[in-house]
Design a protein around this nucleic acid. Structure first.
Lengths: 169, 169
DNA sequence: CCACAATATATCAATTTGATAGTAACGGTA
DNA sequence: TACCGTTACTATCAAATTGATATATTGTGG
């Protein structure tokens, strides 16, 4: 997904500043399946505003710099709808852990079980973190669906590692 | 994982050309947890060669351009071992599917179940694809471990979607 | 026989990252 | 009270990376 569509989509869920978009992507319910940096978000918002796909209103705040709050325009909504008719591309996963595992077997085999044990712990942390994002007020929302999907994946990964951790000796 | 380390690690598993590295990353057992393009692989190989971390020998071939076969040097091996002592960073996953699901609920709710049904099929394809990569001659290799990990994740994702597909109506 | 895939190297504009900078309030702690 | 780290906000930029494309030859299915 291009940053453009990501911004459009997030704004379809509610108005937001660039900072808030970044936060959702880095810490919120988007964090485990999306990434974007300021260097891509801000230019995207500027360009989308020029194209009238989003609106920008400056909200004054006492003793703080103005907030630039962006919201989707009807045109932007159309463009988003159009983008969503296309098949989503395949997932792109990068795992330093799996690469390290593969390489460690070749050059530092004693490292392998450390790697796996650490990773199992990290899954527990991630599961706790994701569970905290669940919203019990709207149990059947897409947001909860996506978070529970994330939890299911984390649990499956943990289970695989726990079951097979002694295989690589 | 930096491209540099990725190249070093792949060469630790055996000599290879830039083309072969790209192929492993795009189609082989690395395909579901790593990515890299020619534009990053070739410059990385050139730089690593300059730094004497890898060697390059030109293999002549009849009627084809020379193959540049790269191999890890003892120095390169040391650098790789060092890199592997560091904790691997967290996985980075990008899923257009999950983003589309979240956005579709807001702007095109009828699209949601299509998205999920298509995705379930794609998981079946991916499972078949990964299974074909398994090497039955070395059942306990790290390579098979990683592929089976991938299969386990695909199955878990498929199961989640199958179980919960009717929740978002 | 032809179009297309595979083998192989390589480049490049456009995008994206990751780090950093600036500014101000708030919270904890010494 | 002074200091320090964090949160809130916008913004930039060098460096890394992508994705597409070019070039050239052989092998292969229709």
């Amino acid at each position: 997904m291009e940053i453009r569509t990501l911004c459009l989509g997030i704004l379809a869920l509610g108005d937001a500043t660039g900072y808030e978009i970044k936060k959702m992507v880095a810490e919120g319910s988007f964090s485990f399946f999306s990434e974007a940096s300021y260097g891509s978000i801000y230019p995207a918002l500027t360009k989308l505003t020029e194209e009238k796909l989003i609106d920008c209103r400056a909200e004054q705040q006492e003793k703080r710099p103005d907030k630039k709050v962006y919201s989707l325009t009807p045109d932007g909504r159309k463009v988003l709808e159009k983008a969503l008719t296309k098949d989503p591309g395949p997932d792109r996963n990068r795992s330093e852990f799996l690469a390290a595992l593969l390489f460690a077997e070749a050059v530092a085999p004693t490292r392998v079980s450390d790697l796996i044990l650490d990773r199992i712990e990290q899954h527990d942390e991630k599961i706790t973190e994701l569970s905290a994002l669940l919203d019990y007020n709207s149990p059947d929302s897409a947001s909860n669906f996506v978070i529970e999907y994330g939890i299911a994946i984390q649990k499956a990964a943990k289970k695989f590692l726990t079951t097979h951790k002694d295989r690589l000796r």
